[in-house]
């Protein structure tokens, strides 16, 4: 089979496995939507006096960031650790399939999920909460999604290097992202938060993803928003993820 055919086949089976896994579909598809509905219900969807935009303008990009991290980072990391610990990755190494095609297939599947979730979240935001994508921000949205998906896919592979078992994988990945959501404009805006909290948010990549996505929906942003330095920071985290993966990734079970 051609490399392209192999990539397509890998992506297809990854998505099939995703659809059949209740935990993966719940955390990546259902939970973000539940959060979106809960947050906009609790805080109402009023016009915020300081910014002049609706409350959901904050939550739609935040939840979009959550879904992207879930699809590219959490899901990919957990699936990879399960495959590693059950010996599937090791067996795969004994086949002619090049490692990059395996990784590429997984990243492609995560990208498809990202596109699906983006359409779903934007659709719900638009129909349910009158949050619109600013036409001028579409290129920025696409670049942010691309850079974000690549960076978090790389970090997803990197985090498998510190997951000793398949039981540990969900706990460790959640430990990485859950606290960060609170300081990264995902669950609550970080304006007015203590300095140390905003600092933590600024160091790690999730906030840059959420804020870069936020520009897409901000009705008052001037001209064409290009959050270039957010992309640079996301990209740097992606490079870090690639380096860790290249150095420490293992195909064989730990146990």
């Amino acid at each position: 089979m051609t490399r392209l055919g192999q990539l397509r086949s890998e992506a297809r089976f990854n998505l099939l496995g995703f659809r059949r896994s209740p935990a993966a579909t719940f955390f990546t598809v259902v939970l973000p939507i539940i959060f979106l509905v809960i947050f906009t219900s609790i805080f109402g969807n009023e016009i915020i006096s300081s910014t002049g935009a609706r409350v959901a303008t904050v939550y739609v990009p935040g939840i979009l960031a959550l879904a992207l991290v879930s699809a590219n980072f959490m899901n990919a990391a957990i699936v990879t650790v399960i495959r590693r610990e059950s010996g599937v990755l090791k067996a795969m190494r004994a086949t002619p399939l090049p490692p990059w095609v395996y990784v590429g297939g997984q990243v492609a599947a995560s990208l498809v999920l990202t596109v699906f979730m983006t359409a779903l979240v934007i659709g719900i935001g638009w129909l349910g909460y009158s949050v619109e994508v600013q036409p001028g921000a579409v290129p920025s949205l696409l670049i942010t999604l691309g850079v974000g998906a690549a960076a978090f896919s790389a970090l997803g592979l990197a985090i498998t290097c510190v997951c000793p078992s398949e039981q540990a994988a969900p706990a460790i990945t959640n430990m990485c992202v859950l606290p960060l959501y609170f300081v990264s404009d995902v669950f609550i805006p970080s304006e007015g938060a203590p300095r140390w909290m905003t600092l933590i948010g600024d160091i790690f990549p999730i906030k840059h993803l959420a804020v870069a996505l936020g520009r897409t929906f901000d009705p008052f942003s001037e001209g064409v928003p290009l959050p270039a330095w957010r992309w640079v920071i996301l990209g740097a985290w992606g490079v870090f993820g690639v380096l860790v993966t290249l150095r420490f990734f293992r195909w064989t079970p730990r146990n």
Partner: peptide, 12 residues
């Protein structure tokens, strides 16, 4: 190659 104690992905 058949590895020792080979397992498969259960959802397929």
């Amino acid at each position: 190659v058949v590895l020792q104690g080979a397992k498969h992905e259960g959802d397929f």
